[in-house]
Design a protein around this nucleic acid. Structure first.
Length: 875
DNA sequence: TGTGTCACG
DNA sequence: ACGTACGTGACACAT
């Protein structure tokens, strides 16, 4: 019995402490989590250190308590609990339940009284008690058997109050803490005490007299006229205050210490709550526990070749690659899972199996995959085209929540409550230490992934149905993955010779400009170092720094442009920067990416990355090849058709984002402008500047164009003023004029922000979602950012939906028409093809036709196209 | 590994 | 008063 240890926690007080100690965190569903998180950390720590046999968390039940009948203004004037905290209490309770810890609250009583009462019970039984709170009032409960832990700054830093610690600190006994409170009062609980008596005086008086009662009996002996007056005048108040500060130790509670036995947590439930709240750090830490302790054994078979009987009509299949760059990476093996048995074939020899290849190409054989795009791209390298891809974990997870950034199976699986798979980092190691493990381990890892896919499929499909996103996933993203995989593996031919010649020319120009810059600066330095450049410009030459960065002077182009008239060196630097960028990123960078065997570049599209639904392109990025400036645009001369007598054919949507906006906000003027095929920037200028069409100057049109961009991005006067280099006031007037001219736009923008606040997310035309938890933040910056995102994401995301749909329709049409034309690239609002000359005429018909019909809007979509002997010529 | 810069839509 | 345009990726430098 002596080894029993009772842990009593003050739930409200600890949650409060955690809330104010931590910044306002939110998870992706917009729930604030800082108090729950802090509470969890505190709980974990204390349980680990104390190993209690009994536990209880007490809560305050309501606003009124028995103390209010003594003093109506008890706890009066208190700021009400912030809503960001109130909303977290249900989760605190849920978490406590998951841990298997008892919790209790009682009408008319505070958590203190519950704790006090149980504390006494436990003491009577001779049990050891630990009380944990953020409130020092509780220290009155300290005895030889009871220690009171009070959290200090932060959440896991604790001060332990034993009677001797209290003696040291105040020179009082624990019970005298109550008397001290009676005399000095407590502002936070609105306990009055004796006005003018603070901690120092109270302690002095109690050291002499022992208690409030004996003090008043011996009031005559108190020295100091003023003090005596104050005490006399407030005798009743002092006594009442003491009563208020006294913790009840015989509250009519319905639990007893014996009910508090703690049997340890249900980790599945605990991690489920952590998952719900997105406690990544805690989940990551607990991963090691799952890895080594709860991960069940799996059986799998390493087979040398594919026996036809292995291949079922439904299987999870996973190609395990060493590197994420699957175009060049070694194929380590494939894993198959049929719901019962796992198989692993190492290396790439599976593709030598005719049975297997036929099975892959058989669309009646259903496949569940981690990443169908990668699987398609790799298969095609082996001259096999994957068919029947029916589930893609990566895409499903991304559609459910695009902010799930990881593409690691373990991380994704964990997000959905599945822990039976290790992270790649765990299996392969990291950085320079990354290496393929022994066959046995590799096979197990790959098989676990296949099993994860199999197991998670129903769960994710259900979630997609629930969100009404199944169509988006199944009819858009999944078929698109196969098309993208094909585009990637087809690649685009790049003429290295063109790049090389441009490179030689650039190198020479760079060296010459470099020399001029050194001469103008009077010394040599690294022009590419913003730090060194800043010193030269703003210290040595003495130009005025217009903007600063975290680390020093800003030397960004927009800043330098403003200084161009101040010193000759500026234009040289701008020129050097521009050419340097071309050389390093686009000449040298791209040449490194040309594959030796086919002289092509194979980018990888990231289909599950952006929070808006756009694609991104990496290794290399082919979505940011220069076009705006002629010098850079020449890079496009290197992008050529892969067959002689073929052409590059490019088609782009004109003003797709503004058309999407018109569709969604239904603003009459904006809709009419598109229906009547007006030049939208000119039309905007006419309305914003109140002029006739013929009086729109080029500057007015330029300004109107910037305003239109601003509208799409979630307008702010400051942003527009920066962009147009005008004052904020002028920008504000432009915006006001715009919104008055297009009232439907204003209404829509207000409405979308309202909706985002209410639902916690915004959606696109095809029901793609983006969660915006920060839209209710009390932090102005975070909130403003979320509001702009709420305005921009439906526009950018719907445009992404449209072109994705167009790609699917286009691929289908090319096939139907039996064409050789290949779709090669997507650059957000344009598609680039290569085509035999004979097919140009047909393309000119079907490309605009298909793209314009991809998704029907209330305004027409317009597609412009061009073709030529290189990408450069498609203008 | 983070910061600044700059290329694209 | 707050300090901002939306979405990306790659490079060089500095730590």
């Amino acid at each position: 019995m002596a080894s029993e240890k009772v842990l009593l926690l003050d739930g409200n007080s600890l949650a409060y402490r955690a809330f104010f100690a931590l910044p306002l965190l939110t998870n992706e569903h917009g729930i604030h989590t800082n108090a729950v998180y802090g509470f969890t950390l505190m709980l974990q720590k204390i349980m680990e250190e104390e190993n209690p046999t009994h536990m209880l968390v007490a809560f305050d039940a309501g606003k009124t308590t028995f103390r209010h009948s003594t003093f109506g203004e008890y706890k009066g004037g208190r700021q009400k609990t912030p809503p960001e905290l109130s909303e977290q209490f249900p989760y605190v309770r849920k978490l406590i339940d998951a841990y298997g810890i008892k919790r209790y609250e009682l009408e008319m009583y505070e958590a203190d009284d519950i704790i006090g009462t149980l504390c006494k019970q436990a003491e009577d039984k001779g049990q050891q008690v630990i009380v944990v709170s953020g409130d020092k009032d509780l220290t009155q409960l300290a005895t030889e058997n009871t220690t009171v832990y009070i959290t200090r700054k932060g959440i896991t830093d604790i001060e332990k109050y034993t009677p001797s610690h209290i003696e040291e600190k105040y020179g009082l006994t624990p019970l005298q803490i109550i008397d001290m409170k009676g005399l000095m009062g407590d502002a936070s609980d609105n306990i009055p005490g004796v006005p003018g008596v603070g901690e120092k005086t109270a302690i002095k008086l109690l050291k002499e007299h022992g208690s409030v009662e004996s003090l008043y009996q011996a009031l005559d002996t108190v020295s100091g006229v003023k003090l005596k007056e104050k005490l006399t005048a407030n005798e009743e108040q002092a006594k009442m205050s003491k009563t208020l500060a006294t913790i009840e130790t015989s509250a009519p509670i319905e639990v007893s210490v014996d009910d508090l036995i703690y049997n340890g947590p249900n980790m599945d439930e605990v991690t489920a709550v952590w998952k719900e709240l997105s406690f990544k750090t805690l989940l990551d830490k607990s991963e090691h526990i799952t890895d080594e302790q709860t991960t069940t054994e799996v059986s799998f078979e390493i087979v040398d070749d594919i026996n036809p009987s292995i291949l079922k009509s439904k299987m999870a299949i996973h190609l395990e690659m060493f590197d994420e760059q699957y175009h060049t990476s070694e194929l380590l093996g494939i894993a198959l899972f049929d719901g019962e048995h796992s198989y692993f074939v190492s290396g790439s020899k599976v593709f030598q199996s005719e049975v297997f290849c036929e099975w892959l190409e058989d669309e009646t054989k259903v496949k569940y995959l981690v990443d169908s795009k990668a699987t398609q791209a790799v298969s095609r390298k082996h001259n096999v085209s994957l068919q029947g891809a029916d589930f893609d974990l990566l895409l499903a997870a991304y559609i459910v929540n695009p902010s799930i950034s990881s593409d690691d199976v373990a991380t994704m699986a964990k997000e959905f409550g599945y822990y039976e798979v290790l992270t790649d980092e765990n299996v392969y190691g990291k950085g320079a230490k990354k290496a393929t493990p022994v066959l046995e381990k590799l096979a197990e890892h790959a098989c676990r992934k296949a099993q994860a896919v199999w197991t998670l499929m129903p769960k994710l499909e259900e979630k997609l149905e629930e969100n009404e996103q199944y169509g988006l996933y199944k009819d858009l993203e999944l078929p698109l993955a196969s098309i993208l995989g094909t585009m990637e593996s087809d690649g685009v031919k790049v003429d290295a010779q063109v790049l090389k010649e441009m490179g030689v020319d650039l190198e020479q120009k760079l060296r010459s400009i470099e020399k001029d810059i050194y001469a103008l600066a009077g010394q040599e330095f690294n022009i590419n170092s913003p730090k060194q450049l800043g010193v030269i410009l703003f210290e040595k030459i003495g130009l005025t720094p217009l903007k600063k960065t975290k680390t020093g002077y800003s030397t960004a182009a927009d800043v330098l442009e403003k200084l161009e008239n101040e010193h000759e060196i500026i234009s040289y630097i701008l020129n050097y920067r521009q050419l340097g960028k071309l050389n390093s990123t686009y000449i040298e960078g791209l040449m490194k990416e040309i594959h030796d065997d086919d002289q092509k570049i194979h980018t990888r599209y990231q289909q599950a990355l952006t929070s808006t639904g756009r694609l991104s392109s990496i290794n290399p990025n082919l979505q940011n090849i220069p076009v705006r400036l002629e010098e850079g645009r020449k890079i496009r001369k290197a992008f050529v058709p892969s067959h002689p007598d073929w052409v590059m054919f490019a088609a782009d949507y004109s003003q797709i984002e503004l058309r999407v906006l018109a569709h969604m906000c239904k603003d009459e003027k904006l809709v009419d402008a598109f229906i009547n095929e007006m030049d939208i920037h000119t039309k905007t200028a006419m309305d914003v500047f109140h002029v006739e069409k013929d009086d729109v100057t080029s500057d007015m049109r330029r300004a109107a164009k910037a305003v239109n961009f601003g509208i799409v991005y979630g307008i702010s006067d400051y942003g527009l003023s920066q962009n147009l280099n005008i004052t904020r006031k002028e920008a504000a007037i432009f915006i006001e004029n715009y919104l008055n001219s297009f009232p439907g736009v204003k209404e829509y923008m207000d409405e979308i922000v309202r909706e985002a606040k209410q639902k916690g997310y915004v959606t696109t035309i095809l029901n793609r979602r983006r969660y915006l938890p920060e839209i209710t933040s009390s932090n102005f910056n975070l909130r403003s950012f979320a509001e702009r995102t709420a305005m921009n994401t439906p526009i950018q995301g719907s445009a992404a939906d449209i072109i994705k749909k167009a790609m699917i329709d286009m691929a289908k049409r090319l096939k139907e028409e039996n064409m050789q034309t290949k779709m090669l690239l997507q650059v957000h609002d344009e598609l680039i093809f290569e085509a035999p000359k004979e097919e140009i005429a047909l393309l000119e018909k079907i490309v605009p036709e298909v793209m314009e019909a991809a998704i029907k809007l209330i305004v027409p979509l317009k597609v412009e196209y061009a073709y030529g002997s290189s990408w450069y010529e498609t203008k």
